[in-house]
Design a protein around this nucleic acid. Structure first.
Lengths: 212, 212
DNA sequence: CTCAACCCTGACCATACGGTCAGAAAACGA
DNA sequence: TCGTTTTCTGACCGTATGGTCAGGGTTGAG
């Protein structure tokens, strides 16, 4: 329950500037890393003077933290499709679809997250130990239930989850490599669909949720 | 054919110092990113004065380039097991084993590579466009041949390769996340074996190279 | 209209960084 | 031993960075 926000011009300005700054920051952090990113670069990309950034976000760390939290929220919501699914074909299939779509729509956020984790998660370690751990255990239980019900082959639920994360996020994090191997062109709509289908087919058949 | 190197004390010193510096650099670049890494930090970790680093490597970029080249060489060699394999079970199985082993033994190098690619490959773009592209096309042909010979299901060879890279490198690049979800402890020998087996089982069954 | 609260920004500061350099020290060939 | 090449390093430099701040502009409630 947040306080009802008045729609004054001030609120609009604040909201819009924070949005613009976060969008620019996400891109710059993704392309340069935390250490390589500069407040000046973010300011230029946002079209604001640097001092204005410090008005809305006291420090570089604070701005960075907000960016990481954003992508984390998006990923958590994507997992909703996992629940209430009758079986792995629907549940995992929909999860792959959702995460592939995020890789396509939010490649910068994915990269920032990857970078953060690779560097030892200095900023979001507590999220890993609480929210993410709970989430993981919950979904692992769902997968285990499907296994017990004979709906898929007995595989280690955790390693399956890692595989889902790895394959889907790879299309964002290593998007530049994929693009280069694709002749320097971004994947087309058709190619994105092929990627999705490949991942879904191989994994669902790999856990014996699809007939070979 | 390199010139035959004399085993003088000077050569030994140079060789040893370059080794120590590269090792320290790999770790620091992995943990802090290119922008976040400092020559001072690398020097401290190598146990040498900063000015000495600049004696062996003129610039930070030059040192970084060497580190990236190193891991790339290692990966290329790992792919040897791919060739001369009678079929996907042996070829892809061995490739997964090799890459998982590298993720375990060289996690820093893997992270540096990931970071480099995520930031748009400013330093090794030419490698992507030549060596890696050729490598990829070659292996894609091998996979296609296996498909034509009925040894595995018809999947897109490129997306299969991306999947292999993603899943195996995930254990290095996201090692910190995996460790956190493992109760804060690194994977044991037994757990590494389980990881390898999970990946191999799911993928090999996923491409119908194993009976379900 | 008034005035307080909020928004904005050019100029500035201390620090830390990559890189340089002069010259000492060690290794080496003769 | 002597002269030359290579290795080593403390001290230094210019620059760029994150962050500050004084003061001006804008908004909106009463």
């Amino acid at each position: 329950m947040t306080a009802p926000e008045r729609l004054s011009k001030r609120n609009a300005i604040r909201r819009e500037n924070e949005r613009v700054i976060l969008e620019a920051a996400e891109k710059v952090f993704a392309e340069a890393g935390f250490g390589g990113a500069t407040m000046q670069l973010i300011a230029d990309m946002a079209g604001l003077p640097k001092a204005n950034l410090h008005y809305y976000f006291a420090t570089k760390e604070e701005l960075y933290r907000k960016v990481v939290q954003q992508i984390f929220e998006i990923w958590l919501h994507a997992a909703d499709v996992f629940d209430n699914a009758p079986g792995p074909v629907e549940g995992i299939g929909a999860y792959i679809d959702a995460k592939m779509e995020i890789s396509r729509r939010h490649p910068f956020g994915s990269k920032v997250w990857a970078s953060e984790v690779m560097h030892g998660a200095p900023v979001i370690q507590d999220y890993l130990e609480t929210t993410l751990r709970d989430w993981t255990e919950g979904r692992a239980r769902v997968i285990q239930r499907w296994i017990d019900e004979g709906k898929m082959a007995p595989v280690d639920p955790r390693h399956l989850l890692y595989m889902l994360w790895a394959t889907t996020q790879h299309y964002a994090d290593f998007g530049h490599q994929i693009e280069t191997l694709n002749g320097g062109k971004p994947l087309s709509d058709r190619q994105w669909k092929a990627a999705k289908d490949s991942v879904k087919t191989i994994i669902l058949r790999g856990i014996a949720a699809l007939r070979a």
